[in-house]
Amino acid sequence: MDELDPVIHASARLKITATLATLEVGDQIAFPRLQELLGMTAGNLSTHLRKLEDAGYVDVVKSHQGRSPVTYLALSRTGRRAFEDYREALRGLLGESS
């Protein structure tokens, strides 16, 4: 079994990727809504999102709603695949077949 992906294998980032993975492919979620679903502070969420973005797992789109800026987030294709591989790897370690 491969090593668990260190980018995802941290509780905060695991929760973030798990949440983003529930979006339909082609959908993006606004930062405040993501924060609400995760119950994390904005600072903490930003820090982990930056790590995921640096790894190429999360696409960040800056947009405007009226005059206020809104950041939208989604898993990239690489990120979605990495999340699925990670979940499979966990199940493999636990001897579960998917």
Binding site: L4, A12, L14, A18, A21
Partner: peptide, 29 residues
């Protein structure tokens, strides 16, 4: 499995805890 990139983060749970956390978060959504 710990690498310098994750060593700075919160302590990692075992695979069972991580899988439970993953499923719990998706159920919450």
């Amino acid at each position: 499995n710990r690498t310098p990139a994750t060593a700075l983060d919160e302590p990692l749970g075992d695979p069972r805890e991580m899988l439970a956390m993953l499923e719990e978060q998706q159920r919450r959504v």
